[in-house]
Design a protein around this nucleic acid. Structure first.
Length: 586
RNA sequence: GCCUCGGUAGCUCAAUGGCAGAGCAGCUGAUUUGUAAUCAGCAGGUUGUGGGUUCAACUCCCUCCCGGGGCUCCA
């Protein structure tokens, strides 16, 4: 652990130093540029510049060259502590730096770090000399508001990466390449899963294979719902805007909603399911014996995101969720959250995700509900996480105004973190929507509402899965599980017969009857990452058997068609190709 | 929304002011093949949209649309 920390610390210093060197290089090449901030990041560093010229890829090359010159000249880093007055004097031409100086509390010391030819207000954390920046590369330039506030001027942010060795840099760059290859937007096109059309911007159209995947995800979730006693409901798409006034969406979410007028009424497209579920709950009487009530909904949601934030499937304007709301008594919270977390971990395991990291968000400054309710519920959530030995971080003040929440972070196959599941307590909904149940003394009581999701948005989850699997879905999720490949026309009818039998077993696939040669058919199936290529020539027809090529290139012969029936016994168990091979290899 | 880069055939990409092209995919024909591309022919375009400059615009200028990168990991 210590070693890891030391390494991270060194990387931090290298990156922070590289940011300073980059700032000097930019000022040398573009005199008069105003500088913003330049921190190290998880993978590299950036620095913000206010320069009249727009930086291009050519400029980045020049800046890199200048940085290399500075690095070679072995400038020593050192820091001094200075008075406010001196600091202001030194940076009198740097308006952003002056703002930073003025923002530093009186009692705090101001330190300036320099590497001889350049100085910066800086807390420190640098290597000793510029030549201790062994490997770096500038990656990209992008716009960034000063201090992230869109009322402030837009600066140009140059992103770079820096590492302790050339090899480390190289492996980072190849990781980026690997990620680019797995980009779900690319694979979405080449695997024919979905596309976007300007006629409905940022709203995905799913081709049959993409729709199959979404349906498989829903089928899977419905099975879990059955076991975990959720009840699926279906609710309308548009609601009278009075509902959104009541829910508070009109006040807080209006910019993100679509509205339509009809017969002098304003109707709003739902951006969330919760209010609809409250209406359902409210429409019937509930006894304390009936609780918890768990309402699940795959309804389509629309959110009018600001243009410029959409990204493939991971940020869209039209999507559905594995959304559910649990209405329960206060004393049921603990069991409900426990059950939810166990369901969630069970599900992530089925998709081959590693252990999640939990973020526990506690009471924010502005909140509803009494302190007593917050005390107790936060205690419950902590207890659950502690008792089950889960890895978690506490985020003070990050909870929703209506209750504390747990968000779930998941690392994918190439180590990137995604926020997927969430579970949020809500002490507010019942009051607002007049939800109640009858207690054992026949008194009206307000239920606690628990908002929860595991996939989050199905579209986004699919995007993450595409990248997680690199497009090679496990057998149970593959839209096309097999391709029957007749070697010549002579085996067409045999293939048709086998195809019918396999589809009786519930397997998905088809016969490749093109006039391509075997090689080409295999190549096509491989590029589509089809799990099973079932090859039929005269040999197979004569022995009434099949030869199966797996997508890793492995072959198994003399398989009877009936043997494939076991693939549909418990398909979710077939999480990887190894399991698949073992099942079919005699 | 804002900054910036981009948009050429279904896909991947050429052509930088002077006749819009290639590979793959598609179609037609031939071939019937044993583990990652058979051969030949044909067809495919209002160069995102609308306007402007020019003898001439994919190319230069403006408008809009769509997409990519990003918009505190806080000196």
């Amino acid at each position: 652990m210590k070693e890891v920390e030391a390494k991270e610390n060194l990387r931090f210093k290298i990156r922070h130093s590289a940011a300073h060197v980059m700032a000097e290089a930019v000022l040398n090449l573009f005199p008069g540029t105003k500088v913003g901030i330049g921190p190290p990041t998880n993978d590299g560093f950036y620095y913000d510049f206010d320069c009249s010229e727009a930086f291009t890829a050519e400029h980045l090359k020049k800046i890199e060259k200048e940085m290399k010159r500075i690095i070679k000249s072995q400038k020593k880093f050192s820091g001094v502590s200075v008075s406010r007055k001196i600091a202001r004097e030194k940076f009198k031409d740097q308006k952003y730096k002056l703002e930073i100086i003025d923002g530093i509390p009186e009692e705090e010391e101001i330190t300036i770090w320099n590497h001889e030819t350049w100085e910066d207000i800086c807390r420190g954390g640098h290597v000793e000399s510029t030549n201790q920046i062994p490997a770096f590369k500038l990656l990209d330039v992008a716009g960034a508001y000063w201090r992230g506030n869109e009322k402030n001027p837009m600066l140009q942010r140059i992103y770079g990466t820096a590492w302790e060795s050339k090899d480390a840099l190289k492996s980072y760059l190849s990781k980026l390449e690997e990620a680019a290859k797995r980009d779900h937007r690319k694979l979405g096109t080449s695997l024919e899963l979905f596309y976007f059309d300007p006629m409905a911007p940022s709203m995905p159209f799913f081709y049959p294979k993409g729709a199959k995947l979404l349906n498989l995800l829903m089928d899977y979730m419905r099975q879990k719902y059955q076991y975990y006693e959720y009840q699926e409901v279906m609710t309308p798409q548009i609601f009278d805007s009075k509902l959104w006034d009541l829910s508070g969406h009109s006040e807080h979410f209006k910019e993100n909603m679509f509205f339509t007028e009809t017969e002098n009424r304003t109707m709003g497209l739902k951006p969330m399911n919760c209010p609809a579920h409250y209406l359902i709950f409210r429409s019937q009487l509930h006894s304390y014996r009936d609780l918890p009530v768990r309402l699940a909904d795959f309804g389509r949601l629309h959110r009018n995101e600001r243009s410029g934030v959409s990204h493939g499937l991971t940020r869209v304007k039209s999507f559905s969720q594995d959304d559910a709301h649990i209405f329960c008594r206060f004393d049921q919270i603990e069991d409900e959250i426990k059950a939810f977390l166990s369901l969630l971990e069970e599900i992530y395991q089925d998709f081959g995700f590693e252990e999640p990291l939990y973020h526990l968000s506690l009471r924010p400054k502005e909140r509803s509900g009494t302190d007593q309710v917050w005390d107790e519920s936060e205690k419950i959530m902590k207890k659950i996480l502690d008792n089950s030995n889960k890895k978690y971080l506490v985020q003070e003040g990050e909870g929703a105004f209506y209750g504390p929440k747990i968000d779930v972070m998941i690392p994918d196959a190439i180590g990137r973190e995604w926020q997927l599941g969430t579970v949020q307590l809500d002490f507010f909904a019942a009051k607002k929507f007049k939800l109640n149940y009858f207690s054992n003394e026949s008194q009206k009581q307000e239920p606690i509402v628990i908002h929860r999701a595991i996939f989050g948005s199905l579209e986004r989850f699919l995007g993450i899965l595409i990248e997680h699997y690199g497009g090679a879905f496990p057998f149970w999720l593959s839209p096309t599980q097999y391709i029957l490949i007749p070697i010549s026309e002579n085996q067409f009818s045999y293939c048709d017969k086998v195809n019918k039998e396999l589809s009786k077993f519930g397997l998905r696939g088809n016969v490749d009857k093109t006039s391509d040669r075997l090689n080409a058919k295999i190549r096509k199936a491989q590029l589509n990452k089809t799990p099973l290529m079932i090859i039929c020539g005269d040999k197979e027809v004569d022995s009434d058997s099949l030869t199966i090529r797996f997508r890793d290139g492995e072959n198994v012969s003399n398989i009877k068609t009936n043997a494939l029936n076991i693939l549909n016994n418990d398909p979710i168990k077939i999480k990887d190709d190894e399991t698949l091979l073992k099942l079919l290899k005699p």
